[in-house]
């Protein structure tokens, strides 16, 4: 990533909550990060850690109620997206920032043709004529590797396989060549060979378009090959942020270390068993006090229970939110 590229997305202290009958869910608890043009950022963390909610909050796709974006700002170029009107937001969604989702089986509308779902984005955001939209849709399907694109426009989602549907989703998201693509676990619902194809496809398309990308996943293995930078989330907090190589070589947060130990690797000796993380993820229904990972942390100190550490620079571009220096086991 060249240094000359400038930051175009800046998220500051984003907090999102859900008011449910069981109580308030503290889903995102003050998340800040930035993104440069053309950069690929991976967001990792286990299920329910607030990865998706963070990204949905950026695009304001959270259902309100029960959701509520309590505070924070999302500066995209010159605008705070959280302050825009709903109709101004419609011009951002799909045109500036596009999103693809986890389950391609349910993410396409079953009663509308693939062609219609592809062209409606173009129709909404560009002055193209219906004929131009149709031609562009054929080009898009071709581009994401769907054979016989011209005829398949008239088919419905159920006539496509899971992998093909995710390709359609990607084509739809990239229709207006957005500046940022948010991919919310786009390969999780697919089988392994299809996963690899989709990842390769997205990498190639990203090069073609030159857009930035946020790739949400719970699979650290996927991250290594494609991301520039990684954010690790836990219980609605960013606990570590680093360049991708540095994270694998030199993890600074006990949670990241535990995640990496839970990852099967070809270069690790067989007798060394995979380690799972002890305990369960925290209850998101209580307002967090202290470090959220403390109950499961092997380095836990007395201060961790009382006070939640801030995300601070520990080394160059490497940030971590931990009281402990994991190399010595003592306090930093």
């Amino acid at each position: 990533m060249s240094e000359s590229k400038h930051t175009f997305l800046q998220v500051n202290d984003l907090k999102t909550r859900f008011h449910t009958p069981e109580g308030t869910v503290y889903a995102v608890n003050g998340v800040s990060f930035s993104l440069k043009e053309g950069e690929t950022l991976a967001v990792v963390g286990e299920s329910g850690c607030g990865k998706s909610v963070t990204m949905m909050s950026i695009l304001r796709l959270i259902a309100i109620p029960p959701g509520e974006i309590v505070s924070g700002e999302v500066i995209y170029r010159d605008d705070d997206l959280l302050k825009l009107s709903e109709s101004e937001m419609e011009h951002i969604r799909g045109r500036e920032i596009a999103m693809i989702f986890q389950d391609p089986m349910t993410s396409l509308n079953p009663v509308l043709t693939v062609g219609r779902q592809l062209t409606e984005t173009l129709r909404t955001h560009t002055p193209m004529t219906p004929e131009q939209c149709r031609e562009r849709a054929v080009t898009l399907l071709d581009w994401v590797g769907i054979p016989d694109a011209a005829n398949r426009l008239y088919e419905y989602p159920h006539q496509f396989s899971g992998g093909m549907r995710q390709r359609v989703m990607i084509a739809m998201a990239l229709a207006c060549t957005p500046s940022l693509l948010i991919a919310d676990e786009p390969t999780t619902a697919l089988d392994v060979t299809i996963q690899a194809q989709i990842i390769e496809l997205v990498k190639r398309l990203k090069q073609d378009v030159g857009m930035a990308m946020i790739w949400i996943t719970h699979d650290l293995g996927v991250v290594a090959g494609m991301a520039d930078r990684v954010i690790v989330m836990y219980a609605g907090f960013i606990v570590e942020e680093s360049e991708v190589d540095d994270l694998y070589e030199n993890p600074r947060h006990p949670y990241t270390i535990a995640l990496l130990q839970a990852l099967p690797r070809a270069d690790r000796r067989r007798e060394k068993n995979l380690k799972s993380i002890q305990g369960a993820p925290p209850n998101m229904l209580t307002e967090p006090v202290g470090c959220p990972f403390a109950p499961r942390c092997e380095f836990v100190k007395e201060i961790c229970i009382r006070e939640n550490p801030l995300l601070e620079i520990v080394d160059g571009k490497h940030k971590s939110a931990c009281w402990v220096d994991v190399k010595t086991g003592g306090l930093r």
Partner: peptide, 11 residues
């Protein structure tokens, strides 16, 4: 989910 998709497209 497909309604969320439609919203994410800015319709």
């Amino acid at each position: 989910d497909y309604i969320r998709t439609a919203r994410s497209k800015g319709l």
